[in-house]
Design a protein around this nucleic acid. Structure first.
Length: 120
DNA sequence: AACTTGACGAGGG
DNA sequence: CCCCTCGCCAAGT
């Protein structure tokens, strides 16, 4: 019951489980929300075991809007295909528009000032 | 107990 | 855009 008794991994999974289909979060974003000792790298470390834990691991990508699972067991192609099936569109370079797909939990919405100042 | 290894990210060239 | 370096820290050896 106590939140602090949950393992490092479970806190990450609990957050990932909340990501709606067709939306994504980044490793850095998750680390900022969980705070303390969580860093983008450790979040990535946790996620490599996520496929066996019944969590939508494909909805976590890097800050550039790309999948980065290629080096280990999971082909990047598979992650892209799963996200494509959820309606996410990747360009030729394997990148998607984070502005369109990134999801923020309640209380962590992106500040609007930043979005309006980005004229890309 | 020391050392290595990353599903990362920001910054600089 | 791509490539490199460095900081970060849990887990595995």
């Amino acid at each position: 019951m106590n939140v602090d008794e949950r393992s490092y991994r479970e806190r990450v999974y609990e957050l990932v489980l909340q990501i709606p289909s067709g939306r994504v979060m980044t490793y850095g974003q998750i680390s900022l929300i969980l705070g303390e000792s969580y860093t983008p790298r450790t979040v990535g470390y946790v996620m490599h075991a996520a496929e066996t834990e019944n969590v939508p691991w494909q909805r976590v990508i890097n800050s550039q809007g790309k999948c980065s699972t290629g080096r280990l067991t999971i082909p990047m192609k598979l992650q892209q295909e799963l996200l494509d099936a959820e309606g996410i569109i990747f360009n030729e370079k394997g990148r998607c528009e984070l502005q369109a797909y990134q999801w923020f939990p309640d209380g962590y919405e992106q500040e609007e000032d930043k979005q309006t100042s980005l004229f890309q």
